[in-house]
Amino acid sequence: MNKFKVALLQTDVCDDKEKNIENAVRLIERVSKEGADIAVLPEMFCCPYNSSLFRAYGENEGGAAYTAMSKAAKDCGIYVVAGTIPELKDNKVYNTSYVFNRNGIQIAKHRKMHLFDIDIEGGQYFKESDTLTSGGDVTLFDTEFCRIGLAICYDIRFPELSRLMAAEGAEVIIYPGAFNMTTGPAHWELSFRARALDNQVYTIGVAPARDLEAMYHSYGNSIVASPWGNVLSRMDEKEGYIIQEIDLDYVKKIRNELPLLKHIRKDIYKLLKSK
């Protein structure tokens, strides 16, 4: 199959974990009925984006959010990229994205590699490393459509990671994210277009809706960029969803017409993945 549909679920996130999960399930059910093959949720879709809350809202693998997403995938017959969930493991907290297939079986898991520690004068201060532990795996998963790469938010700023995923066969890269009102207007669209263009892949970014009463103000603007670097779909700051068709023949077309991945000078430089 050369085409499939991805639903970007830009959910409101409140301080009630159960309500956040129920809202996510409701939207998964809705987009599955509208023909979506894959549903993607935002970073920390079940938890306010506040590092002081990550442990309190966290769960072991197989917890409430995990189980609900697995069940929704099975009940709706849809792939679910379950945004991210604060994962508790060995007294550590990870920012973790799980992927479930149409039967509700976990087929991938990515722990955010690069932790968001910034201090911008006159702008945003945030330090994820106060609470979170970083992951260390490059994550891809296979579907009947294509191979898909998975990373989380700040991971997109490190082009080596997306290039590794493209080199291992990714034609689409998905990033649950939550850029803020300092970094979002400056770099959100630019980052997704750049990584799409660099690697001739579709890039998909899904963020929470903006809540100005929350401590952290998400930029929203969930987005899909094409292998040519064009923006195909983009939301505003409000809760909602979009369903975007992904045409894999277009990936092949762009890679044939402008074969930059074949022009990499491996005789001069190499990008190596640690064993």
Rank of each mutant, 00 (worst) to 15 (best):
G83V: 06
F100V: 02
K89E: 13
G123H: 04
K71R: 15
G77C: 07
P86G: 09
P86Q: 05
A73I: 12
A82M: 12
G63R: 10
G169S: 08
K109Y: 06
H114A: 14
L132D: 14
T133F: 01
I152H: 14
R147F: 07
E128V: 09
G83W: 08
F116N: 04
C146I: 02
A170Q: 07
Y175C: 03
S97V: 08
L115Y: 04
A178R: 13
I105L: 14
R157I: 02
V81Y: 11
E144T: 13
T131M: 15
E59M: 02
K71A: 10
T67P: 01
A64L: 15
G135Y: 01
I105Q: 14
K71M: 15
L88A: 09
V99W: 04
F100G: 08
I107W: 01
G62N: 12
Y154F: 01
A72H: 08
I174W: 04
K71F: 10
F126T: 08
I107M: 13
F179C: 07
I85G: 08
L190N: 03
M69N: 15
T96F: 01
T143W: 04
L115D: 11
I78H: 10
A72G: 00
E87S: 09
V99R: 13
V80W: 00
I78G: 02
F116Y: 10
A65N: 13
R147T: 02
E171V: 03
A108N: 14
S134K: 08
R102T: 14
F179M: 04
P185Y: 03
F126E: 12
G169F: 03
D155R: 02
E128R: 10
G62V: 11
D119M: 12
E168W: 00
F145I: 02
M165V: 06
V138A: 08
K112Q: 15
G63Q: 04
G62P: 04
G184N: 06
S191F: 05
R157S: 00
G177H: 15
